Amino acid sequence: MDDTPQEITSLVGREVYSNNGVFVGEVEDIRLNLDQEVVNGLALGQLNGELFEEVSTGRKGIIIPYRWVRAVGDIILINDVVERLKGAESSESGLVA
């Protein structure tokens, strides 16, 4: 495994998949907490229309919390977004449109 630090901007353009192998979207931007120097979330565009057809955001993307990220490599693997969307009614879901 290569432990060489990577630029945060290298995440932009990577495809995001759920841990079940379902395409979620593509990283368009990164949400940072500059005070704590941590990544808070990933702004996704090019969304999978089947996953987000019931979520009317009025926008072309979503922001997912970085805590959902399970692995980063050639692609980004996140927790199962379909299960998270079903619980989006609660304020703890973390999904920001």
Rank of each mutant, 00 (worst) to 15 (best):
D3M: 04
T4K: 10
T4I: 09
T4R: 12
P5F: 00
P5T: 01
I8N: 04
I8H: 00
S10A: 10
Y17W: 13
Y17K: 06
S18L: 00
V24K: 00
V24Q: 03
V24G: 01
G25S: 10
E26I: 13
E26Y: 03
L32W: 06
N33F: 11
N33Y: 12
D35R: 15
D35P: 12
Q36E: 15
Q36G: 14
V39E: 01
N40K: 15
N40F: 13
L44F: 05
G45N: 14
G45A: 12
E50N: 11
L51Y: 09
L51M: 13
F52H: 03
E53P: 09
E54M: 09
S56H: 10
S56K: 12
T57D: 02
K60M: 12
G61K: 02
I62Y: 06
I63G: 02
I63F: 08
R67N: 13
R67F: 12
W68R: 09
V69N: 05
V69D: 07
A71R: 14
A71Q: 13
G73D: 14
I75G: 01
I75M: 11
I76W: 02
I78C: 04
N79W: 06
N79Q: 12
N79Y: 08
N79H: 13
E83N: 10
L85N: 06
L85V: 05
K86W: 10
G87W: 08
A88R: 09
A88E: 02
E89M: 07
S90T: 15
S90M: 11
S90K: 12
S90L: 13
S91F: 07
S91G: 13
E92M: 02
S93K: 00
S93Q: 01
S93Y: 01
S93V: 01
G94H: 06
G94W: 05
V96D: 11
V96H: 10
